[in-house]
Design a protein around this nucleic acid. Sequence first.
DNA 1: ACCGGAATAT
DNA 2: CATATTCCGG
Length: 305
Amino acid sequence: MREEEESSSWFARWEEQLPSPEELMPLSQTLITPDLAIAFDIPVAAAAAPPGANQNPGLSLHHPPASSRPPPHSDPESSDLNSASAAAGGDEPARTLKRPRLVWTPQLHKRFVDAVAHLGIKNAVPKTIMQLMSVDGLTRENVASHLQKYRLYLKRMQGLSGSGGGGGGGPISAADAATDQLFASTPVPHHFLSRGSVAGPEPFLPYMPVAALQHHQQITAAMQQQQYYHQRHLGHYGSPAGGGGFDHAFPNRAVPHSGMHQMVGPAAPPGMSFPPTTLVDDLEPAKRGGNGERKVLTLFPTGED
DNA sequence: ACCGGAATAT
DNA sequence: CATATTCCGG
C-alpha cells in the first residue's frame, strides 16, 4: 500500500505548519510561574515579552529591596543565616521566597469585582474569588485582604448614602478616601449593598489566566518615608468631562525605540485575534503636582471587559 | 480549614 | 501617610 507514502507527505506538511513560537507565546505565557520569575528576577514583562506583544499586566508587584519578615521570636532555623544571598546562588528559592508587595491595579481590582459580582456576596469568599480570578500569583491572602477593604468600602458607601445632613461626626478617614478612588474606578456591578441578593447567572467570561509581573522601579527610601504617591485627597473631584477627556499619558518607560523588529504574530489577522487583554494601562503612579486628576480609564461596561 | 477582622511593616 | 502583608480569633 502507498499508505506509507501518504503518511510521509502528510507528516512533512505538518512539520511545515509548525506554529511560530511567538504565536504560542501569548497563550503559554501563563506557564511561567510567578514565583519562579520573581525568584529569578526575570523581567518577564520587559525581556521575555516584547512590548508589542500583548501583555497582561493586570498584576503589579512591587519589588522591595529586601527584608520584610523580621521574625519576632527566635528563628527556629537559626543556624547561620543570612541566606538571603543564597537566593542568587541558583538553588531552589522558589520555595521560601517572600512575595513582593502586590499592587492592586484598577484592572486587577476590576477583575476582582467581577468575580465577586458573579459569585455573589454570599459566596464571595477569598478562595472562590481567587480561583475565579485565575490570576496566577494571586494568593488567598491577597484576595482576602482586598476583599476586606472592598467590603468596608461598600459598607461605608451604603452608610452614608441618603444621609445628606451629615457633616459632623463623619469618621471618614483619609484612608477611606484613598481607597475610594481605587474602588471608584470600578463601577459596582450590582448593588452589593442592599440586601444580599444572590447574584444571578451573570455571563462571566472565562478569564484567561493572567500572570504578569511588573516590577516597579526601586523606590527611594525617602519616598517611602514620605508618601508613596497619592497626593492628598483633593478638595473636590470634578467630573472627568471637563477637561480632560482622555488622557493617554503614559510615562512608562516601556515602548522601546522603533528598533523593534519583533512584532508579535504574523500580522495579526483580522477577525481572529487574541483576547484584547489590553489592560495595558500601566498603573504608573504619575506624580501629579497639586492639580492632578485621577485617570479615568473606566469606560462604560460595554458588556465586556 | 476558612473566613473575618485587626495589627504591623513597608 | 497609605497600602498590603501578616497574625489572631471565631
